[in-house]
């Protein structure tokens, strides 16, 4: 489904601040797999997602998505089949437009935007139904500006927008980190439902090791832009937070801990 070969991204190359965000990364994600990504700050987790989505260009290496090389394709092109959520709930929605206008934009994913009417009657009914599944009462506020919603509501809406036309790949970048625990749990639950129902290949970056080990079906650990550990199957099931920390420090040979536990 998604294959990354020898991917390299270096920030501030040739200066004292040079940092290898991705250092010869090789990864492969099977169709329908759900992978969690952990690592300390600066390990390259977000850079990995940005490289896949096309927000950052690779310095060298290749990315193949669904059999097609997308290394040189622009972000909006990849977005036809990639859905994306950020940590910042404000990033995924247009605040001065209404809920239904936001949904209508997402609903047109992968199509040419022409002069046909933006929101048809049938769309409105469909949006209402989709919103009611979030259980946040947004289905009665189709004409409200998104800027009036809370962070949790906006993130849930963004999740719906990212999946309303089921993408082949869903990238989640700490998408519940800025929410209160209760809302975070709710958004996580809805995420799981959407992903399972549509069999979407998912990559989720998180700072919460517990979430990482108990969500999805495999976990990868990054450090200084390198892949240091892949956890799958029985090994992953038997893994505890304490043991992971030990294994990680041995593998990564760097100070691991506090920053990660955040």
């Amino acid at each position: 489904m998604l294959t990354i070969k020898n991917a390299r991204i270096t920030f501030n190359a040739g200066t004292v601040n040079e940092r290898k965000a991705l250092d010869k990364i090789n990864l492969s994600f099977a169709r329908g797999s759900f992978t969690t990504v952990i690592g300390s700050n600066g390990a390259g987790k977000s850079t990995l997602l940005n490289a896949i989505s096309g927000a950052y260009a690779l310095d060298s290496g290749h990315i193949f998505l669904d059999g097609e090389e997308i290394t040189e394709k622009p972000e909006h092109f990849r977005a036809r089949i990639i859905g994306r959520l950020f940590q910042d709930p404000l990033k995924g929605t247009a605040p001065n437009m209404t809920i239904e206008e936001n949904l209508a934009l997402a609903y047109g994913r992968g199509t040419r935007r022409g002069l046909s009417i933006g929101i048809r009657k049938a769309d409105g009914v469909f949006f209402k139904e989709a919103l009611s599944r979030l259980g946040l009462g947004l289905e009665d506020r189709l004409k409200s500006k998104v800027g009036l919603l809370s962070g949790g509501q906006r993130q849930a809406l963004t999740l719906l927008m990212a999946t309303i036309v089921p993408p082949k790949l869903l990238l989640l970048d700490e998408h519940t980190a800025a929410l209160d625990p209760q809302t975070a749990a709710q958004v996580m639950r809805i995420t799981g439902e959407f992903v399972r129902e549509n069999n979407i290949t998912t990559i989720m970056v998180t700072h919460n090791i517990d979430d990482a080990l108990h969500t999805g079906d495999s976990t990868i650990v990054l450090s200084n832009g390198r892949l240091v550990l892949t956890l799958e199957g029985v090994e992953r099931e038997s893994m505890t937070v304490e043991r992971l920390m030990k294994v990680y420090s041995a593998a990564a040979n760097d100070s691991f801990g506090d920053s990660m536990l955040l």
């Binding site: 989505s53 622009p74 972000e75 909006h76 092109f77 977005a79 036809r80 859905g83 994306r84 950020f86 990033k91 995924g92 929605t93 247009a94 605040p95 001065n96 437009m97 936001n102 934009l105 997402a106 047109g108 994913r109 992968g110 935007r113 927008m161 990212a162």
Partner: peptide
């Protein structure tokens, strides 16, 4: 309003 969101919706901003 939000250029990031537009690109994420597969629109060339």
């Amino acid at each position: 309003d939000n250029e990031d969101m537009v690109r994420a919706s597969s629109i060339d901003s």
